[in-house]
Design a protein around this nucleic acid. Structure first.
Length: 293
DNA sequence: CAATCAACCTGGGTGC
DNA sequence: TGCACCCAGGTTGATT
């Protein structure tokens, strides 16, 4: 699933190849992919525009156009953004093709059809961006800020971290990895984390995302980069989709539960529901289970 | 406010 | 081999 590291990888590869290029045309093969505006209006506003800048906001790919409109793409779960020669073999599940000047084209392929492309003016984009939390790899994301946000939420920590209004970029893979790295149980209410735990989480979020970027993303199901190549981070995950495998830190089998409707992977020993001091390990009592009445 | 769930979709895996 | 079934999870929105 494209999360921040996957989108970042795509953007970094597209940037030098798209900036300065002109859009020559667009072919829409699956209409609902174009969420806004109508296809006819999109075509009219898009053709002839130069792509000035390619960047990322959260999990959105953003292309600033010479008209001051912005082309905004979200890959959702199975979306791919492929930079191809016009003559390249067709890519399965292609929904929209953006034709560039010259021989190349950008193909938006998406098996499950959840991905969306929007063309937004200044005001519309400003509103979208304002609805999103800070970038975790930027200076806007600080320990003080995280401390304050978590202190105000009684929701489970995993749900808070997945909510793009608070913090952008984390999806189901990297949130599980970050919580493991920080030694925090995904079901802990956010406002029960102590200062030490928040600080560990702060660093763990950045580490998990940076590590994913360094490996050019995680290719489990459908993710491929702009050239159609898989990332390598799936080989370095510590807990995600490793149910039953040994925890890399203590050897306890990794468990899987569901939190907020998401498959959730964690080490029951390294990420206890009740926080324990690092120096002592609380072993469960033999008769800890009490029948509930 | 918090938690749950359905909806959007379909490929790919499972069990029989 | 065929087929019914279920799961994957980003985001929005409705319901409890």
């Amino acid at each position: 699933m494209p999360e921040l590291p996957e989108v970042q990888t795509i953007v970094a590869d597209l940037k030098p190849r798209l900036e300065g290029r002109k859009i020559a045309g667009i072919t829409v093969l699956w209409r609902p992919t174009i969420a806004q505006p109508q296809v006819e209006e999109l075509t009219e506003r898009l053709i002839g525009q130069r792509i000035e800048r390619v960047w990322r906001r959260g999990k959105y790919v953003v292309m600033d156009l010479s008209s001051d409109d912005r082309l905004v793409l979200h890959l959702r779960m199975t979306g791919r953004l492929l930079f191809r020669d016009r003559s390249a073999p067709e890519d399965r599940f292609t929904r929209v093709v953006i034709h560039l000047d010259g021989e190349q084209q950008l193909r938006f392929a998406d098996a499950r059809k959840f991905g969306r492309i929007r063309l937004l003016d200044d005001e519309q984009f400003r509103r979208l961006s304002a609805s999103l939390g800070p970038e975790p790899l930027s200076g806007d994301f600080t320990l003080d800020w995280l401390t304050e946000v978590l202190a105000r939420r009684g929701q489970r920590i995993k749900s808070v971290l997945l909510d793009q209004r608070y913090l952008v970029g984390l999806g189901n893979i990297y949130v599980d990895e970050a919580l493991f790295e920080a030694g925090i149980n995904p079901t802990r209410p956010a406002n029960t984390l102590n200062d030490d735990e928040v600080e560990r989480l702060f660093h763990a979020i950045r580490k998990a995302l940076s590590s994913g970027i360094a490996d050019r993303g995680t290719s489990f199901d459908s993710y491929l980069d702009a050239f159609g190549e898989p990332g390598q981070h799936q080989y370095r995950l510590q807990v995600y989709r490793r149910k039953g495998a040994a925890c890399p830190r203590c050897g306890t089998p990794i468990e899987r539960t569901v939190v907020g409707g998401r498959g959730t992977h964690f080490c029951p020993r390294c990420q206890p529901v009740t926080p324990s001091r690092a120096s002592e390990t609380v072993l469960p009592s033999r008769k800890a289970q009490q029948p509930q009445g």
